[in-house]
Amino acid sequence: MQDHKPRISQASKVNRRGRRPRLTLLLLAIFGLVIFVDLEPFSPRWDLPGANAIFWDLHFPRVMAAAIGGIALAWSGLMMQTLFRNPLAGPFLIGITPGATFGVAIVTYLGSQIGLDDSCTSFALQPLAALGGAFLVLSIQLALHKKLTQLHALLLVGLVLGYFFGAAVDIITQTAQAQQVKQFVMWGMGGFDRVLPSQLPILAVSASIGLGILLLNRHAFNAYLLGDIHVESAGKSIKNLRLWLIIGSASMAAIVTAYCGPVSFVGLIAPHISRKINATESHGPNILTTAFAGAALTLTADILANQLIANSILPINAILSIIGAPVVIFMLARK
């Protein structure tokens, strides 16, 4: 099969060839450092009986969730940016995040009214509801993708679905009680503390599916970036390729959102950092570095959220946005 790689100039290649391994190593070192720092227990009472169990039940899953969630979101972002050939694409753009939010709003606010007898059910059902909402959007997108041949139409459908579910959430919120609003707001802040050890394999499986799709289709995705004609000349179906991209990116984003809440910016920035390091848009080298960049971002944000202010925790989304916004602006300015 012909290898389609988005090309960059020869001079640029030569200039960047020297620093590419160094930058990749630096990223690896950052990843190693943050995972080491984050794994270091910081709770003041680790000397108490049962502290070991607490470490494995609470600390370890949080760090692993941050790492796997970051990788999955980064790959999801990479696939969405490929799907739309748009560097600004992310889970919000195709309606995944608003869909998940809608699902959570339904169980949080309307749980008691639809026959769920205890408010606790909403705690337990939140991840399932988020998953349901996200996959509802995914199903709509999949149903429409055969009819909508134009990419911008698919994008528009995502945006419209986002507005639709956002409006539905607003209406539900209006009738909610203060406690329910609190619960919903907590979910919306995102975070890895809530992930249970039993949920880690689900996150890992979703990331593995994403990795499989990326590895198997990396050459076709490269061709897709160059234009539909390149895909067809490689003997691939455009529709099938888009289907893989939608399924891969949306399922990873949906599962991470379901268990960690909406986590912003990672899917947007990580592929950019990776492309900057590799100096290419080719998927082959970017798969690994995107994953390391995503995990390094979420782990750093997790450390800062937990350690920046003593005896307090900051919203992970706020940290990511504060880190992410200057990075994006810097990168755009340098381009």
Binding site: R45, A51, I54, D118, S119, C120, S312, I313
Partner: peptide, 30 residues
């Protein structure tokens, strides 16, 4: 203070009594 469940459980592991459980009114719910 808003703290993570990890810090909370670390601090509260030896607590004798738990009151005002907010939304939850049963052990199952908690």
């Amino acid at each position: 203070n808003v703290i993570s469940i990890e810090k909370a459980v670390g601090l509260f592991a030896q607590a004798d009594i738990w009151i005002n459980t907010d939304l939850c009114i049963s052990l199952n719910c908690l």
